[in-house]
Design a binder for these strands. Structure first.
Lengths: 228, 228
DNA sequence: GTCTCCGCTAAGCGTTTGCTTATCGAAGCG
DNA sequence: CGCTTCGATAAGCAAACGCTTAGCGGAGAC
């Protein structure tokens, strides 16, 4: 067999189990990692990485700190991951895949454009709010990935944007929506959804689902065609 | 005079010159720094810091790198600044003050709520787009400041949010706007404006002012009262 | 001429960083 | 038993980090 070939990455060995085919919704980050990653040590490392990255940012977080939180020696992290960068890439990949699964499931259900866009916005916002910490890392430490990694993650982001665009375009074509520029409107709507990360608080007045509903109302009134 | 007292910070020595009282609008970041900072060396350091912080984030940026970009020795930075953290704090303060000046000037002009909110949104978005790099640092490296510094910067942010809230509340009271929850609506609108940082590109199809106009349209149709 | 100030630099201190090396012990297997 | 595999560790390396120290050189004051 191939010598000199470096070991496979965690991302390449992820359990191919999505929220679709395995009983019930994902409840939280630990639950999501349980479904996708077999080794308990690797799960602990990734949970610790999310915690460290979210608190201090990728570059300020030390691998020693992550190892300590995972109750392992500093070197044990490198038994499972090639580098600190791969830690971040694994986290971002897991979260990007999950959000894409959530939103595309919402977009698959039939309905009028307004109904479909409502579901897509609601799920997108609620997902970001519910997994606030990990989605924060996935979004705001994205630029610390290398070019090849960024390119792979961008595929998920582009696919999600496409789902939004399809709903908006369908509504414009059947006259229920008005948008002067679909491209700008699309990025404005998506970035509005993501920006819930900047203020949402788990212990706050509203649940993730309630915030999602509210944002869906905002987006629909933003897009509804003039009754004139 | 007081011995043992550490030297004053750059922020404490800023020129008290706002865009109001000194001829014309600020054209770009260098122009803004020229108006507020006397020493050319300090201006070069701050411009270099903005560049480094925006490219790699606060923690990954090295003071040696910043010094090299400013054409100074590494130690020269510490002649003017106590620490790397003070570099960030100075940048964030300058940008936060500037944005607050811009938005509050827009809010001061009289008009119906819809007209005032349109101006406020337009200026807020256009300011972020026009100073994209520095505003990016100001917003996304905010968490690297210490608690006391964050508290001071939050005063500007809260004041800006208040300006938005006043417009929205006035529109709800005179019946021209509809908002089920003014608090959530306010943070959604403000974070929508800020999120232009995530996609705006200086060389793109639209100018900062055009994007501001488009966002103002979006926000107004989001808030306008139902004609039913 | 001498003294003081001030912006600036060369050199380097102490610490922390990401990551490697050599090794261990338990488990699986013929 | 002998051998391999594998998760994990103790120890440490080379590099980079933020920041300090001691001192230089030109300008202004008297």
């Amino acid at each position: 067999m191939g010598l000199g070939i470096k070991k496979r990455t965690i991302v390449e060995r992820l359990t191919a189990e999505s929220s679709m085919n395995s009983g019930g919704v994902v409840r939280n980050l630990a639950d999501l990692f349980n479904r996708r990653i077999e080794s308990p040590s690797i799960r602990r490392i990734l949970l610790a990485a999310v915690d460290s990255f979210s608190k201090t940012g990728f570059h300020a977080a030390s691998t020693r700190d992550i190892a300590r939180k995972a109750k392992l020696s500093p070197a044990a992290v490198y038994v499972h991951f090639h580098s600190k960068e791969e830690l971040l890439y694994t986290v971002v990949t897991l979260m990007s895949e999950w959000v894409f699964d959530q939103v595309s499931a919402a977009a698959r259900e039939r309905g009028r454009p307004a109904e479909r866009l409502r579901r897509v916005v609601q799920v997108h916002v609620a997902s970001h709010a519910a997994m606030r910490t990990a989605m924060f890392v996935s979004n705001f430490e994205f630029h610390s990935l290398n070019a090849a990694q960024r390119k792979k993650i961008l595929r998920y982001r582009d696919a999600i944007e496409k789902l939004f665009e399809d709903c908006i375009r369908a509504g414009c074509e059947d006259g229920s929506f008005h948008a002067a520029d679909i491209g700008i409107t699309k990025v404005a709507v998506v970035s509005l959804c993501v920006s819930v990360l900047n203020w949402f608080s788990p212990g706050g007045r509203l649940s993730p689902e309630q915030v999602g509903d509210y944002y869906a109302d905002l987006v629909l009134s933003m897009l509804r065609a003039d009754p004139t």
